[in-house]
Amino acid sequence: MGATAPVMRLRRPRWRDPRLIVGIVLVVASVLMGALLVSRLSETTPVLIAKGPIAPGDPLDAETLTTVELRLGDQQELYVGSLDAVPEGAVASRAVQAGEMLPVSAVGQPEDVALRPVVIPVDASVAESVVPGATVELWHTSPAPQDGGSGEARLLVEEAIVRRVDEGSSLGMRSMSVEVLVPQESVAEVLQVLAEEERLDVIGVPGAYGVTP
């Protein structure tokens, strides 16, 4: 008979085998990391939500804000979680839309808001885009040539923010008006146009914050 080929026997892994221990550690670590990630993604946290449009300079309190539970993940630190975290006397430093989470960057003090409110009378209805919190332009149209003017329109304020829209009264006792917030350096020029009773139009800006094209 010929020589018998040697039989290869597989050795059972031992618990003290370093490769087996490393493999177990890696599996356990991956499972724990996955569980932690799922837990963080499903975890909710309180955050302040605007009840309605908030204009720059408006107070940040229980009348303008409410608390809801949302999944913010890693963005939790970007938003204010409770009214207790809002400093006393704080106001909105920029416009916050209805239903929007209150960003930490939108919390300021009155002296931080370099805007001033001006009420502009409106002869006819304004566009649907002219709503509280919307960014608008103010256009001044000088009198027609027959009235001693040039009849030209010019952009008076490039960025103003609507604070309030007054629809007036059905009996005509109160005309329609729009309260806008304009940069402090533009207030004098706007008031001069209003004092001279010249035409000043409030125009919505398509694509701007708070305005739908």
Rank of each mutant, 00 (worst) to 15 (best):
L191G: 05
R16Y: 08
A90R: 05
R154C: 03
M8T: 14
Q97C: 02
S142G: 14
A85H: 08
R11C: 10
Q109K: 14
S42C: 08
D58N: 08
T212Y: 10
E43R: 14
V157S: 01
P183Q: 07
T67Y: 04
I24A: 15
A92Q: 05
G204N: 05
S125R: 13
E159S: 13
A153R: 15
E158R: 14
E198V: 03
L115V: 02
G81P: 10
D61R: 05
A85R: 12
L72F: 02
M173D: 12
P87V: 08
S142A: 15
R164F: 10
E128A: 14
S169Q: 11
V180Q: 06
T135Q: 15
P183R: 05
R163P: 01
A3K: 12
E159G: 02
E88S: 14
L78M: 13
E77V: 12
L37D: 09
E185F: 03
P46G: 04
E167V: 07
L60E: 01
T64Y: 04
S93D: 05
P103R: 07
S177H: 00
D74Y: 10
V80N: 02
V122A: 15
E158I: 05
S105V: 10
E152H: 09
E189F: 07
S186H: 11
I161Q: 00
V104P: 07
G23S: 13
I24F: 13
G57T: 03
E159V: 08
L20M: 10
V193R: 06
A195I: 08
Q192E: 15
D58I: 01
L155Q: 11
V162Y: 02
G57L: 00
